[in-house]
């Protein structure tokens, strides 16, 4: 639902980096996207395709999404597990004293420029 807002943030950041580096055109943006970041990849792609056509510097620029699996750490038994499969409760020991280690990222990894 907020994918369009995320796209505008990405474009703003990418344009800034491109300008700092004297780049004329960006052909690809590589985005690290966590599994539980609450950003939906296909909606992000739809918004991206619409938004980049309004930017000369980003015309036909590809958004390459690299998914990052979500991992939770258990404070009680010190083991990790897959967040999406098991949620908040540790499958190893049943504790709820757990926190997300990764999987929340919405991070611009790099850009490819002409």
């Amino acid at each position: 639902m907020h994918e369009l807002g995320v796209v505008f943030y990405i474009i703003k950041d990418v344009k800034k980096v491109a300008e700092q580096n004297g780049v004329q055109h960006v052909s690809k943006v590589i985005l690290d996207l966590g599994e539980v970041s609450m950003v939906v990849p296909y909606q992000l792609q739809d918004c991206w395709k619409w938004a980049v056509q309004r930017e000369e510097m980003l015309s036909n620029c590809i958004l390459d999404i690299h998914p990052i699996p979500a991992v939770t750490f258990c404070e009680s038994c010190h083991q990790e597990y897959a967040t999406v499969t098991y949620g908040k409760i540790c499958p190893h020991c049943g504790s709820a004293d757990t926190y997300l280690v990764r999987g929340n990222e919405v991070e611009i990894h790099s850009i490819e420029v002409d």
Partner: peptide, 15 residues
């Protein structure tokens, strides 16, 4: 073609 590393959260500016 050239690659520029960024490694920055999209929400960093807002934060």
């Amino acid at each position: 073609m050239k690659v520029i590393e960024i490694k920055k959260s999209v929400f960093a500016d807002n934060d």
